[in-house]
């Protein structure tokens, strides 16, 4: 009798859901996440292949970014600030050098100047075994006194004017703007960064397309369930949520796969690269992605997976 009256009461106020508004959000999201995980695990081979496809697609730009970071770090010790080397005539004498030093100090366009006495240069060059033999046979110190000058304004045009001005000064034999290689490298890095961005953009579109297609297949597989849920009063949000979680999880796991691929490649290349760099007298160890870069990679991958799912649902649920 009691049970029957309960049926009547609830039949007259059927909105059971309104009693628990606080929990609905959590319950719904927990349920959607569980369903998405179950679907990922239910087809392990397809999931694995999808993860590999996403992982490789993401590993290319992310790996490029890692290499660029390494090149930048490797060159970090070398200042890219343009420097002007002012070499004096070998017969100029110390007095002329002091005079030139004072003149440079007073010059309004000069930020910093450092004097390199010819004796020091000789000692430094003698430290190199190959050069010592050559130097020893020479009757005199072949190196001139020199100044390393940094300008306040490092625009190429200003620097060129400064170089021209220094050339006119007495007892100056040669003036050289020695930042050209650093600038070339910087330009090359900039180009590299643009290539990585372009590649990243293209492959991000690819990833979105992969997720779009996977979700399309999912929608087709679960068409009956979607139809029944709609008949039973499911909102679009309720129906879409497991698919969105599925897309986001796939993206996240794909990002993690890319990270693993990059870490493995870095580990694989580290020893041969160390050996190569050692031959060029560099001491450097290849670094994998930083924590921040890895977090960014995972975030972007998750976002793109979600976006692919969202676009696919917009396309395929509209017609159901």
């Amino acid at each position: 009798m009691r049970e029957r009256s309960a049926w009547i009461t609830d039949a007259q106020s059927p909105d059971g859901c309104l009693k628990f508004p606080m929990n609905i959000w959590l319950v719904n999201h927990g349920r959607a996440l569980r369903i998405a995980l179950r679907r990922l695990i239910a087809a392990p081979l397809i999931t694995l292949l999808s993860l590999l496809a996403i992982g490789v697609a993401l590993a290319l730009p992310a790996g490029g970014q890692m290499l660029l970071n390494n090149v930048q770090r490797l060159m970090g010790s070398t200042s890219a600030t343009p420097q002007i080397s002012v070499f004096m005539a070998t017969d100029a004498g110390r007095g002329a050098a002091t005079e030139l030093g004072a003149r440079l100090k007073k010059h309004p366009a000069v930020k910093q100047q450092r004097f390199l006495p010819r004796e020091d240069t000789l000692q430094r060059m003698k430290a190199n075994a190959g050069l010592r033999e050559v130097i020893d046979v020479l009757p005199n110190n072949p190196f001139p006194d020199a100044f390393i000058v940094t300008a306040i304004d490092d625009q190429p045009a200003t620097l060129d004017l400064l170089v021209e001005e220094f050339r006119q000064w007495p007892k100056v034999a040669h003036v050289q703007l020695d930042s050209a290689w650093a600038r070339r490298l910087e330009a090359l890095l900039r180009l590299g960064r643009n290539v990585v961005t372009l590649l990243g953009g293209l492959l991000a579109t690819g990833l979105t397309a992969i997720t779009f297609n996977i979700i399309r297949m999912q929608v087709l597989t679960h068409r009956a369930e979607i139809e029944v849920s709609q008949l039973l009063g499911a909102t679009n949000g309720f129906i879409c949520r497991p698919f969105l979680y599925f897309g986001a999880l796939l993206g996240f796991a794909g990002g993690a796969t890319a990270w693993l691929l990059i870490a493995a490649a870095a580990w694989w290349l580290r020893t041969p690269l160390d050996e190569l760099l050692h031959l060029y007298e560099f001491t450097y160890s290849l670094q994998s992605l930083s924590l921040a870069d890895a977090a960014l990679l995972l975030g972007i991958a998750t976002g793109l997976g979600w976006l692919g799912a969202l676009l696919s649902l917009g396309q395929h649920l509209r017609h159901s």
Binding site: D15, G16, C17, F20, N23, I24, W25, V27, N28, R31, A224, E225, E227, V228, S229, L231, L232, G233, A234, F238
Partner: peptide, 29 residues
């Protein structure tokens, strides 16, 4: 709603089929 073709989900148990409407309205499990 009881439709002519029932629209049961054949990949889910009897229990899960009946649970579906309550999941939809967000009933505490």
């Amino acid at each position: 709603l009881v439709l002519q073709d029932q629209k049961l989900l054949f990949d889910r148990s009897v229990f899960e089929n009946v649970m579906l409407p309550l999941s939809i309205i967000g009933f505490p499990p």
